[in-house]
Nucleic acid binder design. Structure first.
Lengths: 166, 166
DNA sequence: CAAAATTTTCAATACTTCCTGAAAAATTTA
DNA sequence: TAAATTTTTCAGGAAGTATTGAAAATTTTG
């Protein structure tokens, strides 16, 4: 397989993967492109490479910066902004976990909290509150497990955890 | 807060959460409804409760059964099918991990494998292959970690892991 | 400060995914 | 086997998301 074919395949697959994870295709493709690019790329170059409009490129680059997956790089003497991708996969995963935890898990915990104040007047409402408390307990555990995971370092992940769990 | 309000809020939030996880809103709502329902429900009842069409209900119930999150229940002497939700959150999470691993992570591993056969003729292609191999290594580790996680039992998750990691 | 370069915004539109409802298929009953 | 009941399918339309492109805003340069 030649380089261009490999690159295209990677960008394409990474984009498809993103789609099933609530990340839009273009955003995932830009991320893929920057992951495999040895040098920082300008918006122009990204537009060119992925055949997308300026607006689209700009929006998704901002979003990636927001997620901590891409960084601006200013070249001395150059007016354009350049962008580099976070290459350390463990960092990538940690950032995604952190963001999604904040955006999704935490709001859900809040809702579960509110909901468990339903008055337990009859069998049905008692059962409801029980189920909700169960889910809340589980979610809180997931939440703090993810916290610890994010604090742990990459070596821990690739080493100890694997051995321990087997 | 009263029961109906609590139920509605839960179904609504669970639906929203699903959307950001590549699971469509209705599917997540049906799952939520069955999670908090103490009894099995028929398609009719689900349609009624969520105000959705028969077709929509049917499709999404099938999908949930496919994911192992909902089961058919046949009541003796009744012609209709009834459905119950998997109530054990650990089972729910395990099924989701298993399915998504199979549908997304494993195909990605396959692609990474193919791609790492790019000929390393120059600096650029060497760098590309290096990055891809890195990602592949990481993904394989994630894959087997998830395998172990799914094999482990719920107690392990709620107990040991939490202590160890802190 | 004005001109040039670059980035950002956003209304219009293209694209994708989801949902409906009615017809077809399947299953059960008598 | 025919009628009744229930489930499944799927074309067409609705709703939701993503993308474009051009204008506005911002930044840099001389």
């Amino acid at each position: 397989m030649d380089l261009q074919e490999g690159k295209d395949k990677f960008i394409q697959s990474w984009g498809a993967l993103g789609s099933s994870w609530g990340i839009n295709r273009t955003m995932a493709q830009i991320h893929a492109l920057l992951l495999i690019s040895p040098v920082a790329l300008s918006a122009e170059e990204i537009m060119e490479e992925l055949k997308i409009s300026r607006g689209n490129a700009n929006m998704n680059i901002r979003a990636l910066i927001d997620w901590g997956l891409v960084f601006k790089e200013l070249k001395p003497g150059e007016r354009k902004e350049y962008f580099v991708g976070e290459k350390d996969m463990w960092e990538v995963v940690k950032n995604i976990i952190t963001q999604r935890k904040k955006r999704e898990l935490e709001p859900m915990l809040k809702v579960l909290d509110e909901i468990s104040s339903v008055e337990e007047v009859d069998a049905e409402s008692k059962e409801f509150v029980k189920v909700i408390r169960d889910i809340k307990l589980f979610s809180s555990k997931a939440d703090s497990t993810l916290d610890s995971l994010v604090k742990a370092d990459s070596n821990w992940f690739v080493g100890t955890f694997m051995k321990m769990i087997r």
